[in-house]
């Protein structure tokens, strides 16, 4: 166990845990977007920044990735932290005007409007949760983050149908901004704009549509392969 201090409160927390884990366990709220318990940290959205005292002075670090250490002093909502979060949210409001969660989060910091000219549409905040889930949890590796900088996007290879997708819907389930949308039309399940289409059957138990057994690359075949 190590002793740390969050917002003036002395705490004893588990060694090797992150600031975020220590804060959440002890009831301090820190917003997150790209962090997911099942996937670990990625450190991309920066919304979880907190202020710590480091040898080179007071700095902001991503609490999801920063490990606690003896004597660490953390501020989760100093003015500097709030300003950084507000900037991030204001940028995201402009880049992803259709992402509800961003609007809600921004409103929590008193932000209703953005000073930057907003994009026409957009929900994806490039948190990489879908990609990491597809590779690390599902093991399908159907999508990835392509290109870089302002052109970065989530996509399967060549932005078209991919046989690697097993239509499991994990990406859709885990996406924090509902940017991925699996639609079921007339027993055809279509994934987001990737146009991967799969025949489905209605499940007797849950009454949802799932991918048909016959289709190569479907969930069932894939599970069989695993076994």
């Amino acid at each position: 166990m190590v002793n740390i201090n969050i917002n003036g409160q002395d705490l004893t927390v588990r060694e090797n845990c992150t600031i975020l884990e220590a804060a959440l366990i002890n009831g301090f709220y820190i917003p997150t977007l790209c962090y997911h318990e099942a996937l670990g940290f990625y450190g991309a959205c920066r919304i979880c920044v907190v202020e710590i005292a480091a040898p080179r002075g007071q700095i902001l670090v991503a609490s999801c990735a920063y490990p606690v250490s003896e004597g660490l002093i953390v501020k989760t909502d100093s003015e500097r932290v709030i300003n950084a979060r507000k900037l991030i949210l204001e940028l995201l409001l402009a880049d992803c005007p259709d992402a509800e969660i961003i609007k809600i989060m921004a409103a929590r910091y008193g932000l209703i409007e953005t000073r930057f000219p907003p994009e026409e549409e957009g929900k994806c905040i490039l948190c990489g949760i879908c990609v990491r889930a597809c590779h690390n949890l599902v093991g399908a590796g159907a999508i990835s983050l392509i290109k870089r900088g302002k052109n970065k996007a989530v996509s399967p290879p060549y932005e078209s149908v991919t046989s690697a997708c097993i239509s499991c819907g994990t990406c859709e389930t885990m996406c924090p901004t509902r940017a991925i949308d699996i639609k079921v039309f007339d027993r055809i399940k279509s994934l987001h704009e990737y146009e991967g289409r799969f025949h489905t059957q209605r499940c007797n138990i849950c009454s949802k549509y799932h991918v048909d057994n016959e289709k190569p690359g479907s969930v069932n075949n894939w599970i069989e392969e695993l076994q």
């Binding site: 880049d95 930057f116 900088g149 970065k152």
Partner: peptide, 17 residues
């Protein structure tokens, strides 16, 4: 802007803006 990897929001979007 053209060399940012685009991973984190402040750099990707902040530089663009």
């Amino acid at each position: 802007e053209s060399e940012s990897c685009g991973k984190c929001v402040p750099c990707r979007s902040g530089i663009k803006r």
